[in-house]
């Protein structure tokens, strides 16, 4: 290689390394940032939570008003009540199985376009919300910053509902309606798998 070219490359490399130099951070997930990130990622990285949250939004969109907006308003509150139970160490019966069942039931409701009365739908979703919140609450004391964890977890849950509702708006078109029902069927299948796994572990 040409010597002058090699020297230029070396100097260029040194300059880039100098510009990109940063202080080392051994523990980036500590404090507020750590709590916010772990709270935000908890509902998203748990597939059982994720599909159930999206299914709530999809079902709300299928049911229409008032379920469409009452569910996203009340779900975080009821889930937080479950979270408090988890934080305080109040046990719930078979939480993992009920969470798996929530994906199966909510996904199935979307797949068959179940037109349940609003009160029944709200009660069913509320029961599942308590169990989902309980699972999050159990994790809360381990977070770096509890307030930041709570903010991240509620934001992620609300955004997942928003995803479900937005996808659910596809039901206005026949093709979109079929797609939404297919999503519901896929969620129900995942729920069946979670349930089978949970039952095997009993």
């Amino acid at each position: 290689m040409n010597i002058r070219l090699r020297q230029s490359l070396q100097r260029g490399g040194a300059l880039v390394a100098l510009i990109l130099a940063q202080g080392a951070a051994a523990h980036e997930q500590a404090g507020v940032a750590g709590g916010l990130v772990s709270g935000f990622l908890h509902p998203i990285t748990g597939l059982d939570h994720l599909v159930a949250m999206v299914a709530v939004g999809l079902w709300g969109a299928q049911l229409g008003a008032p379920a469409l907006w009452v569910l996203p308003v009340t779900f975080p509150l009821v889930m937080a009540l479950g979270g408090v139970l988890g934080v305080l160490g109040v046990p719930l019966p078979m939480p993992e199985l009920v969470i798996a069942l929530s994906a199966l039931v909510l996904g199935g409701a979307v797949a068959v376009r179940l037109r349940a009365p609003f009160g029944v739908a709200a009660l069913l979703v509320a029961v599942f919300a308590v169990f989902h919140g309980h699972a999050h609450g159990v994790e809360l004391p381990k977070a770096a910053n509890p307030l930041a964890y709570g903010i991240g977890f509620v934001l992620a849950t609300g955004l997942l509902h928003g995803c479900g509702i937005t996808l659910g708006l596809l039901t206005r078109w026949p093709q979109g309606d079929r797609l939404v029902r297919a999503l519901g069927a896929a969620i129900a299948l995942l729920g069946t798998d979670f349930l089978a796994t949970g039952l095997r572990m009993l």
């Binding site: 308003v73 975080p76 509150l77 937080a80 979270g83 934080v87 509890p146 709570g150």
Partner: peptide, 18 residues
């Protein structure tokens, strides 16, 4: 919706404080 999110955050923090 913003109100329910704030109340939910408060509930969880209250649980932790308790």
């Amino acid at each position: 919706v913003c109100g329910s999110w704030i109340a939910a955050i408060g509930l969880m923090i209250g649980g932790f404080a308790l």
